[in-house]
Simulated assay, not measured.
Amino acid sequence: MAVHWFPGHMHKALLEIKQSLSQVDVLIEVLDARIPYSSENPEIAKLRGDKPCLKILNKSDLADPEMTEKWQTHLEKDAGVKTFTNSTDNPAKTKQIIDMIRATCAQKDASIRSINAMIIGIPNVGKSTLINILAQRTIAKTGNEPAVTKNQQRINLGSGIVLLDTPGVLWPKLENPNTGYRLAASGAVKDTAMEYDDVGFFTADFLIKAYPDLMKDRFKLDSLPDTELAFLELAAAKRGALMAGGRVNLHKICEVLINELRSGKLGRITLESPEMLIQEKIEMAELAAKKIADKQKRKQKFKDGSLTPDKKDRKEVREQKRAEQSQRMKKKR
């Protein structure tokens, strides 16, 4: 799915992150535990280099716990990366992040007074709520919609830690089309920048395959159909998402499905696995290679022109004559 939502302040924020990163001792990236890959900004990965990074799997109370463990193992294969599962309804656990920051920077010269940490994350991942818990006061503005924070701010957390807060930043181009669907389903993209029906169909297709028992229980179904459309039609009938004449209101039932996913009413669900992403990366690489090959073919076709056999013969004759003329000129010299 193409996501057309990259406000100007996000471009500015990304530039500011690039400028400030050299002064940072540790990077804290807040991820959505339901979509650890899709909520990981690839632009930041390019900039980080070997700088220590603490990845917070936030909203872990909404995610599949078994899948969260898999993601922690997968993410920590990257040198310098540590992970931490967090739920913002457990302030005591959230405060353990302070100890993890200190442990990550344990080798820093003791003569330097403070640890400079930068916290980043995509919109609506729960970053601002997490900051307020760490600071033990309301500093960062929170809201149940993306892109509330607009500017960088420095926050003294005490204990010798200074936190640089940054606005939630997406990236201009989503290479993996499924990433767009997952971001939209989780609420990282404003609803005005997505099509509920499109996202709803993608989400329904995944859920009936990955979490069939949860879907049957939540929508009180005896069995699940094989297709997302049939599932949505049954779910709409159960929830009364119908229009005049008993026709299914697909927009309404898609809206219900997405909102219940976001709130956790469907159960603890993770929308992607490390295995899925490995396969999707292979498919993306194959698609990219095909695009390059197709582009080269178009260039060659344009260069050769649309030649009929007769025109091709005449072209070859002209080229032969030019070659012969060139040889004669060389001999005269």
Rank of each mutant, 00 (worst) to 15 (best):
P91Q: 04
T85F: 08
S87P: 06
D61S: 04
I97V: 14
D89P: 00
T85N: 05
T88R: 14
T85D: 05
T73E: 12
E69K: 15
V81W: 08
T94I: 08
Q72C: 13
G80P: 01
K77E: 08
P91K: 05
L57N: 02
L75N: 06
E66F: 09
H74R: 13
T94V: 15
K70I: 03
N90T: 13
D64P: 02
Q96E: 15
L54K: 01
L57F: 14
E66Q: 10
M67Q: 14
L75A: 08
Q72E: 15
E69P: 00
A92D: 13
N90K: 15
K95E: 14
D61L: 04
E69Q: 09
P65C: 12
N58R: 02
T68K: 06
F84G: 06
H74Y: 15
D78S: 12
N86S: 15
E66S: 13
K95L: 15
A79D: 14
K95G: 07
T85H: 07
K70W: 08
L54R: 00
L62Q: 07
I56G: 07
N58Q: 02
S60F: 09
P91G: 02
V81Q: 06
T94M: 06
L62H: 08
D64L: 03
N86Q: 10
Q72V: 12
D89S: 00
S87L: 06
T83Y: 07
D78I: 13
A79L: 10
L62F: 07
K70C: 09
K70L: 12
K95V: 08
D64H: 06
D78H: 15
L75F: 15
M100I: 07
P91D: 01
D89F: 02
M67P: 00
Q72P: 02
W71C: 01
K70N: 07
Q72F: 00
A79T: 10
D89A: 00
P65G: 08
K77F: 06
I56S: 05
K70M: 11
A92T: 11
S87E: 07
L75S: 07
D89V: 03
K59G: 03
A79I: 11
K93I: 08
A92E: 13
I97L: 12
T73L: 15
I56H: 11
D89I: 03
L75T: 09
D64C: 02
E76V: 03
K59S: 01
D99F: 02
K77R: 14
A63Q: 05
V81H: 05
D64R: 05
E76S: 03
N58H: 01
K93N: 13
L62T: 05
T68N: 12
L62N: 05
A79M: 05
M67N: 09
L57K: 02
A92S: 14
I98L: 01
P65I: 05
G80D: 00
T94L: 03
H74A: 13
K55N: 04
K95T: 10
L54C: 04
I98P: 00
T68R: 11
